[in-house]
Design a protein around this nucleic acid. Sequence first.
DNA 1: TACGATTCTGGAAGCGGTTGCAGACGAGGA
DNA 2: TCCTCGTCTGCAACCGCTTCCAGAATCGTA
Lengths: 342, 342
Amino acid sequence: MSGIEDVALRAGVSKATVSRALSGRGYVSTITRSRVETAANELGYVVSSNASSLVTGRTNNVGVIIPVINQWFFGSIIEGVERALLDRGYDLMLYNLTKNTEARSRVFEYFLVRKRVDAIIAVTLEISPDEAASLLALGKPIAGIGGPLAGIPTLSIDDIAAARLATEHLIALGHTNIMHVGGDSAELMDFHVHSKRLQGFRDALGAAGLPFSDESYMATHFDIPGGYAVAKQILGDPRRRPTAIFAAADEVAIGVILAARELGISVPDDLSVIGIDNHPLAELFGLTSIAQNPAKQGEQAVDLVIRQLETSGWTPPSIHTMVPAQLVMRSSTSAPRTGAQR
Amino acid sequence: MSGIEDVALRAGVSKATVSRALSGRGYVSTITRSRVETAANELGYVVSSNASSLVTGRTNNVGVIIPVINQWFFGSIIEGVERALLDRGYDLMLYNLTKNTEARSRVFEYFLVRKRVDAIIAVTLEISPDEAASLLALGKPIAGIGGPLAGIPTLSIDDIAAARLATEHLIALGHTNIMHVGGDSAELMDFHVHSKRLQGFRDALGAAGLPFSDESYMATHFDIPGGYAVAKQILGDPRRRPTAIFAAADEVAIGVILAARELGISVPDDLSVIGIDNHPLAELFGLTSIAQNPAKQGEQAVDLVIRQLETSGWTPPSIHTMVPAQLVMRSSTSAPRTGAQR
DNA sequence: TACGATTCTGGAAGCGGTTGCAGACGAGGA
DNA sequence: TCCTCGTCTGCAACCGCTTCCAGAATCGTA
């Protein structure tokens, strides 16, 4: 474990020069720089980031707060964030913020405060005003992925538009009896997502002059079993059965398809299904979907905070950025069977 | 941003005493301690972990190296590790080590070296001897989840026994024509897993006097589409069709079930299917499985490294620990249709 | 009452870097 | 030739905490 002093000795220069040579700051002649570099290599020297941080005030760490890890959307975000951070030489500190208030407050009151991160990325966090305030109070660059967050620059697809797009696709195919299966507000995901996708659904129906009633919408868990369970209910009664279902997430849509198959309901002949996400399993189920790219959103969030960190005075151009989402057509949607409904 | 000096002033004591009071090390009278504590609270003081680390040499960070994030098994491990670490006051630094050699060597040569972590947890890493050596050379506590790793204490289920258990379950039901669908060695997962599960399968067949041939085994991607694709091939030819399939992971098994359903093959009447993991989706598909608990394995790995960190001289009792795995019976396995075979 | 053992506290020396400052040097312009 | 300016380097002062050491106060016991 050699220190900077050893390198200085071996290179025949002072600590200050070693520091300048290795960090690339200040004047160092090329000859000296290379002497220092070889000395450092020979000794296997590597700067103590602690000592360095202590004086510079920079940790080269970014904290990531995320409500779930084990779900495609969130896992992809982490992957994107991790890759982007490491590319830029930053380390990623992961905080899994579950609803469990004990662990939760600990993150806010203990972990985030200790001057260990330069910036924070908050992922679809349903946080209280108090918590948002305490994040802001840290005075560090923050970016969020997900719905608008008080005072924090965020990034997400336009959930309303995506839901409208999905619904319009069904309407364009000729469907008039469409149901929406959305997320349960008790879930960990930012509630904005659920309400916005419902909103987009309603908007599209309204624009097409189609009615919306309590029967047009059901909430469930945001996963395959959730979609399956609710579809079993919805599809059980043939008289009320819609000709199309817009699920707020692909996992839910896949659950719907599985339930339909079990009930002998043909997709898309008897029932069209569309989801949002373009989940890796969508291909296998031929699921039509609205594609979004969480890994890329993660990278963009990293951009947002790193840019604030590295170009002083820079602030994000807008408080909420919408990233694009497009329709990916597959075989789970088609025109309704003629005469089946109306 | 008040420092320890400010607290000392306000409490009317020296920096040394503040340090002792707040860290709980050394003698401090209760009255002084409480004065220091209120002063610290009033100022919103929190120690600079950098400064602290610099002198103590401890960072209170643990690095986690993991090949994939977005898969149930790996996501669960991260969740377990994260929870356990935060419980003990450690932060988690995440390194996603993909096959991509560029990013990979960067982790080994740059990130792990910088004295930023006290210990390392390596998850089912297929690492080269060089890489293993460079990990060991850090001189830090290490624990691994997955197959034996040269010189590194590891932790996993007994893959051979688990595979044997699964196969024996099928044999006990009366199956004699059993196929195994395993992982592709090109996958990111530690290759030991694949070969061991195959080994357990062969052992069980052998013990029951059943033949094993090249036709008894196929490899595929370790996910639902992988299982689906290979099952389409296997089940396509009725004459060669086995009465039971042991899939090396539940995701693969679910792919098999989906393929069987599409081909009109009844599970379990025409085909029994068993997997390993007890994946959350196993319930939905009625999948019989060998249950393991990756989150708990994560916690145990944390135990292993933290214990080494906090009790000097302690080393793990054994180089490789086997954690239990039990059979969970559901509806995807049953006796073969009488007369269907043999 | 005396004395050693314990408890408590402050001074000061680091931990391993970074950076302001000043001096030395060579080059270009007046 | 002299002066100025840009380049290069070392000295030394920190960054904010921990801990060794020594001295003071308190306590228990002979």
